[in-house]
């Protein structure tokens, strides 16, 4: 009880200081210091989609000296607009909504804040100060599909929610696999969320039980569950580590690594905004942007991709970068 009273006394004592602090920070908003906010749909402490957004924010902080802040929202659409308002009204000049689901809310808030830039991940939009940024994940997944069809008998895809970035990736995978063998069997399952690692693991295990020898999970935070299922099924199942390095989770199975340095892409976009040359259209990163997208093979694993397939992949990647191979139907 004594402790309680003490804490209250301290709290009251600190209050004027806090008010002064709040007023102070309000004044800073008008200075030239770049402030960038980030909205992510889940927790940034897990490897996955949300961490990518966080890394972008950190990149802007380190490379451009911006003051940054982020907020984790639980896939709750009603809170999106509020978070945009909170940042915009506090003088943040650039706000990244990390996911297509933020687009509607950004458009709504952007009307009232014409000088603020709203960047939306996984979106093709370009309306005034709302700019879509996209990583064409179908391109690296096309390469994975080629590897799967050249090395295996059957492939399985474990997705999170059935939303465009995941669907497009899988579409790329299927297009790649079928460029090698039009009848290559591929099974596809969505677990319906991005958090249930157990469901991702179950889905991977059941695909392997049905004969899949290449399984590719793509479910943000739940992706790791897919890798766990693959790792438990022995050395004969191949997969690619995506977005982050999951080699430790499935050391016997991971053939290579697809890494998107989306962060660097975002840094470049924010830099161009700071320099007064904001993008005049939506931004799409692909294999052509070597700073952003890297596709590498692994050499220290028990099974690795043969040299002739690697050469073939390098050739196909160059074709995709040049725009000669389309990895998606549209």
């Amino acid at each position: 009880m004594g402790l309680c009273v003490g804490a209250r006394a301290v709290r009251i004592g600190v209050m004027p200081l806090a008010i002064a602090g709040l007023l102070g920070s309000g004044a800073v908003a008008w200075a030239d210091q770049l402030k960038m906010g980030l909205l992510v749909p889940g927790s940034v402490s897990e490897e996955g989609w949300n961490r990518i957004g966080y890394n972008a924010l950190k990149g802007v902080e380190e490379q451009l000296g911006a003051e940054v802040s982020y907020v984790e929202l639980q896939q709750n659409p009603a809170s999106f607009a509020k978070a945009f308002y909170d940042y915009a009204s506090q003088g943040y000049q650039v706000i990244l909504g990390h996911g297509f689901e933020f687009q509607d809310a950004a458009l709504e808030v952007a009307e009232q804040y014409p000088d603020t830039y709203f960047l939306i991940s996984s979106s093709d939009i370009h309306e005034g100060n709302v700019i879509g940024l996209n990583t064409d994940t179908s391109q690296p997944f096309y390469l994975m599909g080629v590897v799967a069809a050249k090395m295996g008998q059957k492939a399985g895809l474990v997705g999170g929610m059935e939303i465009p970035p995941i669907q497009q990736a899988f579409e790329g995978f299927k297009a790649g696999a079928r460029s090698v063998n039009p009848d290559f069997p591929i099974s596809e399952a969505y677990i319906g969320n991005f958090t249930d690692t157990a469901a991702a693991k179950e889905a991977a295990l059941s695909m392997i039980a049905q004969g899949a020898d290449f399984v590719q999970p793509n479910a943000s935070g739940a992706t790791v569950g897919g890798f766990q299922g693959i790792a438990e099924s022995g050395k004969n199942v191949g997969t690619f580590s995506i977005f982050s390095d999951f080699t430790e989770v499935a050391p016997d199975n991971i053939l290579g690594l697809y890494k998107a340095d989306y962060a660097q892409g975002v840094v470049e976009v924010v830099r161009s905004i700071m320099d007064g040359n904001p993008p005049q259209s939506n931004v799409a990163f692909g294999l052509k942007d070597e700073k952003v997208m890297q596709f590498t093979f692994r050499d220290d694993g028990p099974s690795s991709v043969p040299e002739e397939i690697r050469t073939e992949i390098a050739r196909i990647a160059a074709e995709i970068a040049a725009g000669n191979i389309r990895t998606m139907s549209n």
């Binding site: 906010g37 927790s43 907020v71």
Partner: peptide
């Protein structure tokens, strides 16, 4: 709770 994150960067968890 949302504001706590934005202003003080307290993790969501």
């Amino acid at each position: 709770a949302e504001l706590m994150q934005i202003t003080s960067q307290v993790p969501q968890v």
